[in-house]
Computed example of a mutant assay.
Amino acid sequence: MTAFAVGDEVLGSSSTPSYAQFALADPAALVTRPADVSWEVAGSLAGAGGTAWKVLDLLGVATDETLLIHAAAGGVGVLAVQLAVARGVRVIGTASESNHELLRSLGAIPITYGDGLADRVRAVAPQGVDAVLDASGRGELPVSIELAGGPERVLTIAAFDAADHGIRFHVGGGGEDTVQAIQDILGLIKDGRLQVPIWRTYPLTEAAAALEASRAGHLGGKIVLLPA
């Protein structure tokens, strides 16, 4: 017996991650899709939302702390920004100039990435930052360690040389906390405190193009694959 019946609309994690029209899932890993949450948004919550929720938990960010997020306008970044803001955290987000207004609208302080990043961060956070989330993976780890005063509260989901810098590398999305993450995010959406910007959708047949767009960066929200 489960809480769901044939035809119920649900969202969550599948048992075997894949790009497919059909998937198997443990009912315990699913929640009911609210009628006012679109499928594009619903499809973004388990992966990007679960990851954003989990990494903030791992970093232990708390009210009145300052968090630096690299690639803050990307799929995970835009959700991590809003989840952190909801906790009362001051967020600084790196992004291209074209996405600065988006970050401001979400409650973050936007700065441009690239040469001189440390100086730009210190201009808005003279004492440095308490924690750093790297969702970019484009060489930001040394400056992140410098700004955070050490590697202990720096975490990456994108830099494969993390171990060389003594940094934690997180994979696995929200893990066993995915359902809790989804429920928390849905609550914030209902209260009007969180939005899920959809940068672009692709049909399933164009999954390779979607991955290439993701690797290229400069996104302004989430990329979503549609089944047809």
Rank of each mutant, 00 (worst) to 15 (best):
V124D: 14
T178I: 02
D119V: 09
G75C: 00
E101P: 05
A123T: 05
V89H: 02
P126S: 03
A73T: 06
H70N: 12
V132Y: 05
I182N: 10
D191T: 03
P110I: 07
T201G: 03
D184P: 00
I111T: 14
I167E: 02
G137C: 11
P142A: 03
V179G: 04
V196R: 04
Q180G: 13
L117M: 12
L204E: 10
L67E: 07
L83N: 06
A159V: 10
L83G: 11
V91I: 07
S144F: 02
P142T: 04
I69M: 07
F160P: 15
S144R: 12
A131K: 11
G139M: 04
P197M: 03
G93F: 03
R104Y: 00
G172T: 04
I145T: 10
T156L: 06
V76Y: 02
V154T: 08
G74F: 01
A159E: 07
Q127D: 14
H70S: 13
L186C: 11
A73W: 03
A108G: 06
I109N: 04
P197W: 00
R104F: 02
N99M: 08
R153N: 02
V171E: 09
I185H: 03
R90K: 12
G192W: 01
G137D: 07
D184Y: 00
D164F: 00
A148V: 11
D164Y: 00
F169W: 07
S98Y: 04
G172I: 04
A163I: 06
W199L: 00
A73Q: 12
A72G: 12
D164E: 14
E140R: 06
L133T: 08
P110M: 06
A71I: 14
S144A: 12
T201D: 03
L155H: 05
L106V: 11
A125R: 15
I198V: 08
V154Q: 05
L102P: 06
Y113L: 13
E140M: 09
G75F: 01
V179H: 04
T178R: 07
G173I: 05
G114Q: 10
L188S: 09
D184G: 05
D177F: 01
V121D: 12
